[in-house]
Computed example of a mutant assay.
Amino acid sequence: MKIDRAALRRPCTAELLPKCAELIEELKTLNDAAFVARLATISDWHTGFGKTELARWADVLDKCDAVLERAAQSRTPGSHQLMVDSPDAAPLRSATIVVLKFTALLFENTFTRSMYSSADRLLALLDAGNIEVVTEVLRLFYVMSKRSRFLSQQLSESDQKRLTGRLSSIAESWGGRFRNLTLSDCCTPGVKLGSVLPISYQSKEGTKLIESVEV
């Protein structure tokens, strides 16, 4: 959800360097397509940006939230498929990945991050079928846990349980306990499930193979 300005407890007092202020103002004025395109050019944190409160980026984060909101919506009412997984949603997938990467950069290079309000979108996107989207969400959660106590202090108890459940599901063996498929295997087009109880035998005359059967 968008950031609740009334919930910001105190004004920002840390120094805001000129280059950082210029970038924030630039991003605030761009339309959706230009906004994502500009974020895609920011792969490293320029030393001229410095480090300041995350609240300085509130307007930018609201624009990021709008992208995540579209991505995390159900494709149709009652459907488990998300908009980001729609066959014609390649631009939305790309935009979502760009936003997730940029948000991770912000968490690494800001402080006072308690005002971040898009965790509900991130939890929803863990159900995405696209492995790149899921990977970037996991990476962002990792940065959050490494750089702050956001997950333990700002997520509600129900959201913490939801996150734990999703992480457990992703980490477990896929395709059943006997098949030992990874998540990436399951996301590969045309994945073939192996036999639950593979049994094979061979009959030979000398070195010539006569028959090989697997059930």
Rank of each mutant, 00 (worst) to 15 (best):
T110C: 02
L151N: 05
G129N: 10
I97F: 01
L106G: 11
S145M: 09
Q153V: 03
S156E: 02
F102D: 13
G78F: 01
A128T: 11
S168N: 12
M83A: 13
Q154I: 02
K161Y: 00
P91A: 11
S148F: 00
A90P: 04
F107H: 10
Q160F: 04
N109V: 12
L82K: 03
D127E: 13
P189V: 00
R147C: 14
A128W: 03
S114C: 03
R166D: 08
A90V: 13
K161I: 01
K161D: 10
T110Y: 01
I97H: 01
S152M: 04
G129F: 02
S152D: 06
L140D: 06
R177W: 10
R93W: 02
R139V: 13
L138A: 08
N180S: 10
T103E: 14
L125W: 07
V133T: 13
L125F: 06
D185T: 01
Q153S: 10
M83D: 09
L92D: 14
R149E: 09
F150Y: 15
S152H: 03
G165P: 11
R113T: 15
S79L: 05
L123Q: 00
Q81R: 12
L105P: 12
S94F: 13
L163F: 01
S148K: 01
R179E: 09
A128C: 12
T135A: 14
D88I: 13
T182C: 13
F107I: 09
T182V: 06
D127M: 07
Q73C: 09
P87H: 07
R75D: 10
G175H: 02
L151C: 06
E172C: 14
S158G: 02
Q73R: 02
S169M: 08
S117M: 01
L82S: 09
R177D: 10
E157T: 12
D185Q: 09
I131Q: 07
L155F: 04
G190D: 05
V84M: 05
L126A: 11
K101R: 15
S117K: 01
D127C: 07
P91E: 10
A124T: 07
M115D: 10
D159P: 00
M115Y: 08
S184T: 14
R121T: 00
F150I: 01
M144H: 08
L138N: 13
L151D: 03
S114T: 11
G176C: 10
M115P: 01
P91M: 11
E108G: 15
A89H: 04
P87A: 09
G190I: 02
